[in-house]
Design a protein around this nucleic acid. Structure first.
Lengths: 232, 232, 232, 232
DNA sequence: AATGAATGAGTGTTCATTCAT
DNA sequence: TATGAATGAACACTCATTCAT
């Protein structure tokens, strides 16, 4: 339970009053846990209610439907994080590589190493079923996060730290390993003995990424190599 | 019922024979389509049957259950792919960077640019519900694929093309963007206007990756920076 | 909660006192409205509470259950009406046809043209579910009302104004159009463009009824015509 | 079970084939029974299924929803009846009073004395909740039936048998006792000891009605009497 | 081999009722 | 007295699975 507070005897006695205010957060936390563990469709509202220590009906006092619960989980937990990171970047003066590293490590501490890291799995799985939610997540999280990483890279290029490159695509590529770390943790990770060490993974990621960014692009694919798009 | 045609006895006979043998593959293809589009839980067997042009009961002549169908979809489609790639690598002689590039482009043509690319999304979403299946996929696909990429990198290091590095973690990091490309295509991609161009993505990925691999690692994170693992 | 006004202590006090006494009546009025509009089962106590401007819990301070509320609605509203009519009839001296007409018009003004007219629909719909309530309504309302109309007809026959007839059955027949007017108003009426004009209906009803009552019965159905009862 | 046929040994053996065709009718009959007994909202689909001897799921093979079931009950049972009556009237030559009587008695035998007589109660109770259904019933049943009765009265007036009158309103008034007989049967009737004899009721109704129709209207309500419309 | 009618367990959602405040 | 948060039983509806044909 993230929040270690909440339990001094003094506060405890105002149980009823506190409950009412705390309930939504409690429910959301339980919902997050179960959604992440089972996926959206396989989650039973009973499970969430049980985990939150309330009856099934209580859920409906706070959230209109199962889908609304999922939406709330996403909205409540995700949006603030990107804003923090943006602020950090705005105030930072120093080498862009350091800023990049700082942001990645911050991501790890505030998101990746948190139960919140289960959310991307949820959304990837349900994006087709709830396009509106996917859109929301894209607009509120992915797009700003990409924006942020892009601005850091641009900053580095401007300062001559990084080699010039096409930024949006670069960001897409460089974001992938972070997201995959989340997904792995909540999908194959638990199944596999060769458990991935996230710290080693992050260090390696940073090394590779910053090495790549700081060297001029090699001409690696001759123009004639012709990678062409197909169907699908 | 799927076609009103009461065709001639002759063709009827041949078609039936062909049908019988082709059935399992037809069913799996239909299942793949629907599973990928809706996710496991939201897929109705009715939909798969309808798409395959058979009755719902027929599915059970070939597959014991919905879960078995999912397993079959995965097994049928995935296993062959890695073997091909391994063979290609074994026979290749030439620069490791070129081999790397070849494998990535092969992956794109045989998997990423195919409806098979929907499978990772499926498995990520259901790994917790079907650990056995996740294990299977890990053992049969992920592990061999990582093995392969690892051997290519080792080959490059041995030849002095790539800088020495810790291989397993590097592979994890470098595989991530490929998988994410699949996932993106089947989750957020359809929702978002700034549609990602896969070819540009792959080119940028190769450039960044091979640049990083071919340069000695910078000391980017001072030992004192202390990234420490937490809970979760 | 229903109004933001924190009025002065003085009025506040008076209002509260008044409120307390008025509450049951207010609740019943709200209940009547909603029951009539939606039917018993489709009525939510929330709706009644909201309409009455109280919390749902308050309803239970005054009425044991939803069913009790329905009973109270019926009891509170219906009983007084027949008594008034009976009194009117007792005091009346004059042609029986005029008395008949007076009673019908009184019925219209005090009941038919009132939200009370929604009650018969309620009872018809729920009679099977609440036999005790149906019994109560029959004993307290239908039976006395029939009694009254019967006495008026008997009075007319005794005075030679009406032709002799079997009274109880006649009353049943002659009451039907009145009840139907209520029911129509609260069922098909609102759906249909050819809106029934109640006044024209009542006038026509009176004309037909009094014409029929004041003429000797024709022999309309030969004894041999044989209408025989069946099952059901 | 209305239809005494259906059960010879020969037909019985084709059980499966026959079932499929017979099912909808069986379900509708069960639905009619339960709906009439309990009202729409208080009817559980389980009850209908049990009464029909099928599982709950089977209902959904034939009817999309509870509401659709109600609609089907109404459509299947009601519409044909009016058509029959219209045909009878079209072919009849003879005194209009006799035709009137014939139609009323036909109504009794084909509808009033049948479980179908429970339908009006249903519709009156649910008209507000399903306006579309009410509209349908009005258009398909009430309106044609009124039309028919109106044409009979017009025929009588034209032939000099009946006194001239305003027909639509008259029809409304004269239809009421028939409908009420149905409603009574399925609401208060079962609760009350003074059980109404339908045959006596019908005879009395016919006598009163035909007496009224065949005499010139008395001036019963002086113009000054002023029945005026009010609120509601 | 193929069908599709039938099943019934399972789940999201509603709502009358209760009770701590 | 009044509240409204909480409950939990109840029910419509779904869908994987079965099986007589």
């Amino acid at each position: 339970m993230q929040n270690g507070a909440d339990t001094s005897a003094a506060t405890e006695c105002k149980r009823w009053t506190r409950r009412k205010e705390a309930r939504p957060a409690e429910l959301l936390e339980a919902a997050l846990d179960v959604f992440v563990a089972k996926g959206f469709a396989s989650t039973r509202l009973d499970d969430i209610a049980a985990k939150a220590g309330v009856s099934k009906g209580t859920l409906y006092l706070y959230y209109r439907s199962k889908e609304a619960l999922l939406k709330a989980v996403v909205q409540q937990n995700i949006v603030p994080i990107v804003a923090n990171a943006q602020q950090l970047a705005d105030q930072y003066s120093g080498p862009s590589a350091d800023l990049f590293r700082l942001l990645i490590l911050g991501w790890w501490q505030q998101f990746g190493n948190t139960k919140l890291s289960g959310i991307p799995k949820l959304l990837v799985g349900e994006a087709n079923n709830f396009p509106e939610l996917a859109q929301y997540y894209h607009d509120q999280v992915i797009q700003p996060a990409h924006q942020l990483m892009g601005s850091v890279i641009a900053r580095g290029i401007a300062a001559g730290e990084f080699a010039p490159c096409e930024i949006p695509t670069t960001v897409h590529v460089l974001f992938a390993p972070m997201v995959m770390l989340s997904l792995w943790h909540h999908s194959f990770g638990p199944c596999c003995p060769d458990n991935l060490d996230p710290i080693a993974y992050l260090n390696r990621y940073l090394t590779l990424t910053l090495t790549a960014l700081s060297h001029p692009n090699q001409k690696l694919i001759p123009d004639s190599a012709g990678v062409e798009s197909g169907q699908c």
